[in-house]
Amino acid sequence: MTIKDCTKNSENKLLCLNITGDKPYRRVINLFIGIVASVPITLTLPADALQVKVTPSNPELGDTLSVIINLDNPDNGSNPKVAIGEKTYPTFAIAPNKYRAFVPTTPVETAGIRKLKISGDGQVQNLAVTVRNRKFPVQRITLPPGKSADGATEYELKRVAAFKALQTPQKYWNGSFGKPNTGRISTIYGVRRYYNGKFANDYYHRGVDYAGAAGSPVVAPAAGRVALVGRVSQGFRVHGNVVGIDHGQGVVSIFMHLSRINVKEGDIVKTGQLIGAVGSTGASTGPHLHWGLYVNGQAIDPVPWRFNGVE
């Protein structure tokens, strides 16, 4: 025999079951219904352990994307991972359970969507970031004989490439970067160039030029460790007398064409500390300072680092 057995729960709502069988079974079922109806049930869902924030919110070519990752339960001792396609970017701890990766963009890239894959805490999050296009000016440079940008020595290229590839876990800088020289800016970041009438494919001005007077001070825009000192006498034909500062976590500064060098490799420098003087050594048409800021091996626009800062 089948009957409908009903009872009310704590909210005075009617609960019914179709029951087949004798009365003893019905009494057991009624008891079960009464227990279920009178005991509140709480479902606890796991918290989202992978929280990601990307800044700036509206980037353009030349900007540095800062990917901040918060992990609730980092239990395997490994840093989270950030990738775009087959390219991965190192992440570094910046606070307890908080990590960051920098993704550089450059003028020779194509504007559009960057698909980021972030992995950590056993979870994967996919984000799409749109990088806007940006127009860069074109400049024509005439270099005298012996000053060609193609005249770099193998030793010079190897030393500079190794310096730009540094990814030191320690973070030396704090807050916004300062100006390395008080002269006016003569060439902005990202300018495309013709050298002696020939367009330099895949080249862009990888920094900011300051038209400081010869011998005027060059100072560290942010704290760091001096990781490169090179001189014309050692074969630095293009960079000239050069100083490179490692700011940590994949961020490095290079200062070119110096007339004087006041630091040595291994020195720890503070913001504003004297490191050299403006000159015209190497591939240079006149006294000026070239400051290049590199992130994970790519030259990015230093201006946002000066005015916005990256903690």
Rank of each mutant, 00 (worst) to 15 (best):
I3D: 15
T7Q: 06
N9G: 06
S10A: 07
E11H: 07
E11K: 07
L17K: 11
I19E: 10
T20A: 08
G21N: 10
I29T: 07
F32E: 14
P40S: 05
T44F: 06
L45G: 07
L45Y: 13
P46A: 04
L50R: 02
V52E: 07
S57D: 12
E60G: 07
T64H: 03
V67A: 08
I68T: 10
I69N: 02
N73G: 12
K81A: 03
G85K: 09
T88M: 10
I94G: 06
A95W: 14
I118G: 00
I118C: 03
Q123P: 15
Q123A: 10
T130S: 13
N133H: 14
V138E: 15
T142Q: 13
S148I: 07
E156P: 06
A161V: 09
L166A: 00
Q170T: 13
Y172N: 11
Y172L: 08
F177C: 00
N181L: 07
T187H: 04
V208N: 00
V226H: 00
V229D: 01
G230E: 03
R237G: 01
D246V: 01
H247N: 05
G250F: 02
F255R: 02
S259L: 11
R260Y: 11
E265T: 13
K270Y: 14
I275L: 02
G279H: 01
S280K: 06
T281M: 01
G286P: 05
P287C: 10
H288S: 12
L289W: 00
L293I: 02
N296F: 02
Q298R: 12
P302T: 04
E311P: 05
E311D: 11
E311C: 03
